Computed example of a mutant assay.
Amino acid sequence: MSSSTCAGVDVGGGGIRVRIDGGEGIIAGEDTSPVPRDRGRVDLPRLAARVAAVIETSAPGVDRLEGMAIGVTGLPGLVKDPETLWHALGDRFGLGALVVAGDMVTTHAGALGFRAGVVVAAGTGVITLGTDLDGVWNQADGWGHLLGDHGSGAWIGSQGLQAALRAHDRRSGGSTALLEHMTARFGHPLDLVALVYESGSPAHHLASFAPSVAEAAREGDPAARRIWAEAGRQLAQTAVAAAAGLEPVFSWGGRLFDAADLLMEPFQSTVRAVLPDARFIPPLGTSADGALGLAKAAASIEARHPYMYVFSRTDAPAVRPLRRTR
């Protein structure tokens, strides 16, 4: 690896994804375990150890990184003292600069390549960022599976499990197809209850059922199809809310959009019902790609960017304060 090697890291509900560029092609790495948490917040010391392990496993020869950027789910609300990542990773990789940003920032950068517009980041959770990269920074949703994240993987999984449990109870509005999927995946409903309510990451388990809801929808189950259609509408409402003050340019990121056949039509039609001139641009890359782009630009990032902390060796390691317009 060259002295200008950079690493981009995406930390989402589905795990850790890494992109490393040392000038000889991009190396990818992944850790699919749930993000470590401590009383709800992201556990930064454990996260740093896992990020380091993915980098060292994926690129065994790396001994110095000029720049690194980490897009973290839950920032700023659930990420306390991000300087912890600088202390844990700075010396370990001889970092010149480190950017710690919300994963909505890295998803936006990956999808639109630092262009103005709105990007919906939807995986286990959902958060949307509309920005012109200057004075407009609109966040919509991102409030977690108990308070928001409408249309996310956890929301879809929860809606699907509720329909399955209604069928189990012989209540109206249930789905026997989803009940069969639930039983095949989790066993008896009491096993599901114990798994979800005793888990340190219930959203992860809820979202793990979203692929089963997609499978049932493609098999023609009306309840599953309604859930996915409503998810598309919920994501669209979030996207429209984040478009205030911007040209109506939209893109997306996150693994939920892999179910494009179920999601895109209700998503796009709902946006266009409000904003007829809306333009939809397929994402140029992923959140990990956006993080890599930020890593390469880490030394020149200015403090005007909100939702972002910047640390470097040229300045005393310090946090550049967040500011939010909404």
Rank of each mutant, 00 (worst) to 15 (best):
A303P: 03
D132R: 09
A297F: 11
V62S: 05
R279I: 13
D221Q: 10
G102Y: 04
R17E: 12
G110N: 07
V274E: 14
A298P: 01
D315L: 11
G293H: 11
L292F: 04
R166T: 04
G23Q: 07
E24T: 14
G40P: 12
I55Q: 03
S175F: 04
A259T: 00
A214R: 09
L190H: 12
L262C: 01
S175H: 02
E198S: 14
I26K: 06
R46M: 04
V18F: 06
S172W: 11
A298H: 00
H205S: 12
A163N: 09
P317V: 04
G113Q: 08
M104H: 15
G96F: 10
D141C: 08
G254T: 01
L47E: 07
A207R: 00
A244G: 15
L85A: 09
R324A: 14
M308H: 01
N138S: 03
L294S: 00
G8F: 07
L85G: 05
F250Y: 13
T106L: 03
V51G: 09
R272P: 01
P321Q: 05
T131R: 00
G148S: 06
V119K: 02
P317M: 03
Y309R: 15
S152A: 10
R304W: 12
S152E: 07
G123L: 02
D38M: 13
V72M: 10
A224F: 01
S152F: 05
R41Y: 14
H150S: 15
E219S: 12
A88M: 08
A52E: 10
D132M: 10
R64Y: 05
R171H: 14
Y197G: 04
R313M: 03
A278S: 03
I227V: 10
R255T: 05
A88W: 05
E83V: 15
L292Y: 02
H204A: 15
A243Y: 07
A291Y: 02
V196D: 07
P202W: 08
A163S: 13
A111E: 00
I281T: 13
